[in-house]
Amino acid sequence: MILQLIDIGYLVAVVLFILGIKLMSHPESARKGNSIALAGMILAIVVSFFTPGLNNIALILTAIALGTVGGLYSAKTVQMTAMPQLVSFFNGMGGAAAALIGLVEYGDLPVDDIGKGSVLMASLVIGSVSFSGSLVAMGKLQGVIKDIRVNKILAFLVLGLAIALAVYVLLSGQPKPLLVYGLVALALIYGLLFVYPIGGADMPVVISLLNSLTGVTAATTGLLYDNKVMLMGGILVGSAGLLLTLLMAKAMNRSVSNILFTSFGTAAGPAGSGQDGD
């Protein structure tokens, strides 16, 4: 009985997520949409407490209490102009949470389960990239981090190495915790290299893209637990975030590939090569 109720609770939460995000895209109903999405999230959290065999409840509640206080405090005190930085920071926290879940779960997963193993590796890599990338984006908006030229080949090399390492760990059929930490380190470095060269003015588009990545990593975590609210909610954010990224770039009269792969420093030749269109 309780298992069925859990499923129904998650189902209702998913419906609230979809409704919320839909209302959020219309000016008159945007605030209502935010509240409805929040109601869905609270429902999903409450339902998750009924997962059979849940231990460490006190620890979970402490973490939630601390996070709530911190989140509310920073959201209430932040200056209006610093809001995008804060969104980027929160987004990075979501990515980090997904990567941490992957790290804990790696020890529990049977090493010969390549299907779930691949999902877990994806969670680890995407979550870590989203974490470090979001922090750089935040630093750039804040003006703390300057544009740094990065050799694109180096960036792709790091990403390629991370993927190769993930494949190796999967196929080795043995637990390799150290290599998994190495994988996370490489993914974190890739996140840095990915955002470093992008100009500060383009950060909103980058944050939207990283937000979409956090959604994807929430979804892969959902696959790991066969949890449909995470899967559906994550993909919803992933695809909506991706479309939003394209729309934002379009509103700035830029193309996404232009923003991501035309690094700030290389614009020295044809000045304004970053602007296309008109």
Partner: peptide
């Protein structure tokens, strides 16, 4: 909307609780 969908991607909290 970006901020709102960012909040939604926090659904990963369900996994972290589990």
């Amino acid at each position: 909307l970006m901020s709102g969908s960012n909040a939604l991607s926090g659904v990963v909290i369900v996994g972290s609780i589990i």
